[in-house]
Design a binder for these strands. Structure first.
Lengths: 344, 344
DNA sequence: TCGTTTTTCTAGATCGATTTAGAAGAACGA
DNA sequence: TCGTTCTTCTAAATCGATCTAGAAAAACGA
């Protein structure tokens, strides 16, 4: 049972290993009769086809692309945004008979954490919301693995992204029109999980969060903008972070969640305190996940699934020559936003 | 840049390849000074550490476990049940520094579809809701890959499951008590996607669906039980399948979704037709995903995340010696179920 | 001082396939 | 009939590491 290799089969049939290999990979290189005899013998011996690792080594193709996450892998699935992205990516991967290798990076950047990135046998990598400067990115570069990211930082020459700054600026303009001058931005800071505190600008993970804050600042130069983190990106951290803000002496008129799950958490926190989003305060999100529509959350819509699909094409499809793809976004106004209360 | 291998580094430093290998894998096998010199030289040459495929081949460890899905990979993410399972599995995988390789199987069992299963370099496999007798399972067995399933069919000696029959029987008893005698079971049949038709019992994918139907039959021997498929397991197929049932001349008093997403779809279909679940008809689900509670769906609760976690332990943790783990379930009654209408 | 143990390093086999270049024989055209 | 082209198959090199067994040198104990 164990130790049955190409060679074993070759010997049993009385042909060379090359021929057995061809029987599996290049059927037209040998006569049908022989091929069938080989396959039959293989079956008999309990040989299940060429070994994956060996093939990968020799042919230089791993048959998988890595998906890099910053958050713990288990968090990755708790945000429908991530799920939507994966669904799109998976769709294309499937088309090219490629598997997805999920690779968690862990919050802290000890070298231990990057072990998976060094280890993994992958042909390419999809970089999903990983902050710039993360050591894993350097490792990928050093390994020479083609990579494409979900944001347009200049650390990867390939990306599929949205114009984060412009999108956030659009939201900022909208909030300004509504009269908001005192904003709290709710973001995730994996470095400081569970720390509900105002952050200095340089504590914001570079990448999308920075760009979104930048867009807001640009559009609302007069406004006071504070940054608060409730830890990892999740509904619960939204509840906690917004709770902290709402219980403080110094409430803002609007809470801008940097993801929908956090914003939904914020809505929950408001509800618990008897506040009605859209009337008593404004809460907005980012992404437009399905649940956002149900909850009436004002948010920035971005084509999540398409992002995954396009990234897949950039990595796998030779016909897709574009390396940098910018997708459109749209401000979706729902019931969670409204004019700033005049009673300041 | 390209073609830098262990050997290159070894030659540059003036040591043997073995020593360079040890520098990476067994630091205590050589002096610190030499190790540092090797690492420095490697860095200089742009060598990013031992090649993954080669290591996998030689050491026989791939550093990844495969996750097998029946549905198209993209569907896998649309059911929160699957997502919950993955989150649990990922948690344990992370602990053991192992990656997850997602492997879609496709609906039809042409040999082409199993290519991924043959190809994939994995140490073990998690079999997620794959019907018994699927060729991919035979391939795994032939390859000698340790596998564990999410259901207790006897095709794998390891599994983490719930007592499907008993759980469904509990639901059946409950429905009987409520006076229901005419049931439609809404299930997914990937063989016949988009086909909204009553199925013969042998058209039901073996595995969980069969067991659940069996449990129902056992608990409600007097009842008329019809089977209907709306295609792949999804909200939309629930809408479509239930829609077909509700538009027919011969409406049942209860629709039993074999998954929550389908049941939620059925609720939507009812709502659209002006029917109130729990009053005009009964709708039940299976799994108890988070959305079920929000929607007031009566369903069977199963510990989704724990299922993933336990399966991970069975596959990876040497301390977990149990091979077969049965987890508890519970009938959760909410507003979507009620007495069968008397006006028959 | 001499034998023994420990530390540090190496040679060479090996993991299991794929690939390139080419041999042997069959088929073919003129 | 002879040279040419296909078809079918093979020998040997190779992918990039890890492992086993053991050599050389250093440290140690009595």
């Amino acid at each position: 049972m164990a130790g049955v290799t190409l060679k074993t089969v070759a010997k049993a049939v009385g042909v060379s290993p090359s021929t057995v290999s061809n029987a599996y990979n290049k059927p037209d290189q040998l006569s049908t009769a022989l091929r069938e005899r080989i396959l039959a013998t293989a079956q008999e011996l309990g040989y299940a086809g060429p070994d994956a690792s060996a093939r990968a080594l020799r042919s230089g193709k791993a048959g998988a692309i890595g998906v890099l996450f910053t958050d713990k892998l288990s968090y990755a699935f708790s945000d429908p945004f991530a799920v939507g992205f994966l669904a799109g990516l998976a769709e294309v991967a499937e088309e090219f008979r490629t598997s997805l290798l999920l690779m968690p990076l862990g919050g802290d950047d000890t070298e231990d954490d990057s072990a998976a990135v060094k280890q993994a046998a992958i042909d390419a990598a999809a970089i999903f919301c990983v902050p710039h400067g993360h050591p894993a990115l350097d490792i990928l570069a050093a390994r020479g693995v083609p990579a494409a990211a979900t944001d347009s930082g200049n650390y990867t020459d390939s990306w599929v992204a949205i114009d984060e700054v412009a999108a956030a600026a659009g939201l900022g303009e909208y909030l300004t029109r509504l009269g908001h001058r005192d904003i709290v931005v709710l973001l995730d800071n994996a470095q400081a999980p569970g720390r509900f505190t105002e952050l200095e600008p340089d504590e914001v993970a570079s990448g999308n969060p920075t760009l979104r804050v930048e867009g807001l600042r640009k559009a609302m130069p007069e406004a006071r903008i504070r940054l608060v983190s409730g830890g990892y990106n999740s509904f619960d951290s939204g509840v906690a972070g917004a709770g902290w803000v709402l219980d403080s002496q110094d409430r803002p008129t609007a809470i801008v969640g940097l993801s929908d799950v956090q914003a939904l958490g914020a809505m929950e926190a408001a509800r618990v305190r008897g506040l009605v989003p859209g009337r008593d305060l404004t809460i907005t999100g980012f992404d437009d996940i399905p649940a956002a529509a149900q909850a009436g959350l004002t948010t920035i819509h971005q084509p999540i699934k398409d992002k995954g699909r396009m990234l897949g094409r950039v990595l796998l499809d030779p016909d897709t020559t574009a390396r940098q793809i910018m997708l459109p976004t749209e401000l979706v106004v729902r019931s969670s936003s409204g004019p700033a209360p005049k009673t300041l």
